[in-house]
């Protein structure tokens, strides 16, 4: 390799380096903005919801225990839950759980009256209720629906009365369910959002209630035994925004965003570097080899 060829090679290499640097300079802001928002991608909610109820007519009050599967330490203990009581929803990590109901006041080591295992899915809600007569209670697991048809409400009915073995429930005369047997539940039905006159009637007893059912909200209507009559209890299962806005929210104008520091030292550095590069280029041009 001749001397001249070597010089050409080196200058080409240097020029390539210079080009890379120049490109980096241009690309730096893009790179910086691409790197900054690298935030932890948060997984969707990994919790589900559980609520616990005593819907066995004539049954004693229960202490209700919730154990994660394979764990002897209760995650949740609800004390003295008597007939007709429904807890609020408890958020729990998705996974398997054992529910145990003991007579109120019995030690946690005692044999439960009722127990069952359930699997809680992320983002799902469940109602676990003791149902049926006190002589033969059982644990019923109900899947609760939180997502409604657009602009509608959802209503489901639990028949927890023993006074009346079959109950018909109407809303402003529209039949929601006919002859629902004791200890059973309907699935959810869509309803127009407004205030309804709700009536539950058995063979000899009935109850009325005025309920406002909102859009995008789901409800559970529980028919209970009162003292010589029926009772109606309306529970809210879940509610959502009526309209889900599209995408994110434009909640800032950038007045406090960190911005480039235009201090003279950086500008002087850039100008000096530029001048030096220009001088080098000029020199290179003047000493161009004569062929």
């Amino acid at each position: 390799m001749t001397h001249r060829a070597r010089v050409r090679r080196i200058s080409r290499l240097l020029a390539a380096c210079a080009m890379t640097l120049a490109m980096l300079t241009v690309a730096a802001p893009a790179l910086a903005s691409a790197a900054t928002p690298a935030m932890p991608a948060t997984p969707a909610t990994l919790t589900g919801w559980l609520r616990l109820a005593n819907l066995s007519p004539g049954a004693p009050a229960f202490d209700i225990y919730l154990y994660p599967v394979g764990n002897m330490d209760a995650r949740l203990v609800l004390r003295d839950i008597s007939y007709g009581m429904v807890s609020g929803y408890e958020a729990v990590p998705a996974g398997g759980y054992t529910v145990a109901m003991r007579r109120a006041g019995q030690p946690a080591s005692s044999l439960p009256v009722l127990s069952s295992t359930i699997s809680v899915g992320a983002g799902h809600a469940y109602t676990i209720a003791s149902m049926g007569p006190s002589s033969a209670p059982r644990l019923e697991l109900l899947n609760d629906t939180l997502t409604t048809p657009k602009g509608k409400g959802l209503v489901r009915i639990i028949q927890a009365s023993l006074h009346q073995s079959r109950v018909t429930v109407t809303a402003d005369g529209h039949v929601l369910v006919r002859d629902l047997a004791s200890g059973s539940a309907t699935s959810y039905a869509a309803v127009t959002p407004r205030t309804w006159n709700v009536r539950a009637s058995g063979e000899t007893m009935s109850a009325t209630d005025r309920d406002t059912w909102a859009a995008d909200t789901s409800y559970t209507l529980v028919v209970l035994d009162g003292a010589g009559h029926l009772e109606l209890d309306c529970l809210t299962d879940g509610a959502a925004s009526k309209v889900q806005p599209a995408g994110g929210a434009a909640m800032g104008f950038g007045g406090t965003a960190p911005r480039p520091d235009l201090s003279p030292r950086w500008l002087a550095g850039m100008a000096g570097g530029g001048l030096l590069a220009a001088a080098g280029a000029l020199w290179l041009r003047r000493t161009r080899p004569v062929i």
Partner: peptide, 17 residues
């Protein structure tokens, strides 16, 4: 000359970054 050019470009790039 090439060295001066490269140094100039380098300084410009570094100060811009």
């Amino acid at each position: 000359a090439v060295a001066v050019l490269a140094m100039g470009l380098g300084i410009t790039a570094a100060t811009t970054v």
